[in-house]
């Protein structure tokens, strides 16, 4: 009887030791597949392109005239600006008596002519004085926003779409001006979507301690969904 009990105790103890050893190995065991990554396969497959969304076209101003086809005539910037004398001191549309009224300007303490080309108003101007087509606006931005340009070039700044794996498909990337208004570049303030719910139809205390009901209505959700834009930059 005593012998049996001793043997049983020994068995239980050894079982426990075994279990402890197993448990000690749990974490490494669980993580084994990821801790020992398989060899990096660098594919030689041709890469699909990264398409950067084009910059703006050269601006055209709508006029009150119509052309021979009956369409509203559009004038280039230089149509007017060749007749006026450039003023280096103008830093905001607010300083102008007419034209460009109502434009928000919030982009540092700069003159219009730091970016707009006083010798050719249908193009932009780099800091070294050379002319730059509107479509290449990113180069202009990058002059001052070096870290952002560096990040952009590494793929760490700006929204994108398509494939992470370019052996399988292309990627489309945003241009600076897709998200930033050049004259007011801070990202706009927006109303957040899809408020979270803690539970379905359960009274939830608001931040101020009063009780409000998280409504179960599917209607609110439908509103949110119908307001969704399929576009990227809604």
């Amino acid at each position: 009887m005593i012998a049996i009990t001793t043997r049983k105790i020994a068995f239980v103890v050894s079982c426990l030791c075994f279990a402890a050893v197993l448990l000690a190995g749990v974490r490494d065991h669980v993580a084994a597949p990821s801790d020992a990554p398989s060899q990096t396969i660098i594919s030689n497959a041709p890469l699909h392109p990264v398409i950067i969304r084009p910059g703006p076209e050269t601006p055209r101003i709508l006029t009150t005239q119509t052309n021979y086809a009956g369409e509203i005539a559009r004038a280039s910037c230089s149509s007017c600006h060749t007749t006026t004398t450039p003023n280096r001191n103008t830093a905001s549309s607010a300083q102008l008596l007419k034209f460009h009224q109502g434009m928000t300007y919030a982009h540092g303490n700069q003159s219009c002519l730091n970016c707009h080309n006083e010798t050719d108003y249908d193009s932009l101007r780099l800091a070294n004085g050379s002319s730059l087509p509107y479509a290449d606006v990113m180069k202009l931005c990058g002059q001052c926003h070096g870290p952002q340009l560096r990040d952009y070039e590494m793929g760490l700044h700006g929204g994108m779409n398509g494939y992470w794996d370019r052996t399988r498909g292309p990627r489309t990337r945003n241009n600076c001006v897709d998200c930033h208004d050049p004259h007011n570049p801070a990202y706009p303030v927006v109303q957040p979507v899809l408020p979270p719910k803690d539970r379905i139809a359960v009274p939830r205390k608001s931040e101020h301690g009063s009780v409000k009901l998280c409504e179960k209505t599917a209607a609110s959700i439908c509103n949110v969904l119908s307001s969704l834009h399929p576009t990227l930059f809604a």
């Binding site: 700044h157 992470w164 370019r166 945003n174 998200c179 990202y187 990227l232």
Partner: peptide
């Protein structure tokens, strides 16, 4: 090979996704 939906939806490009290897 595609990017996750949350990344594509991000309007500010705050999200970066890819192959750690």
């Amino acid at each position: 090979g595609k990017l996750p939906a949350c990344l594509e939806a991000c309007p500010t490009g705050a999200r970066v996704f890819g192959n750690l290897l």
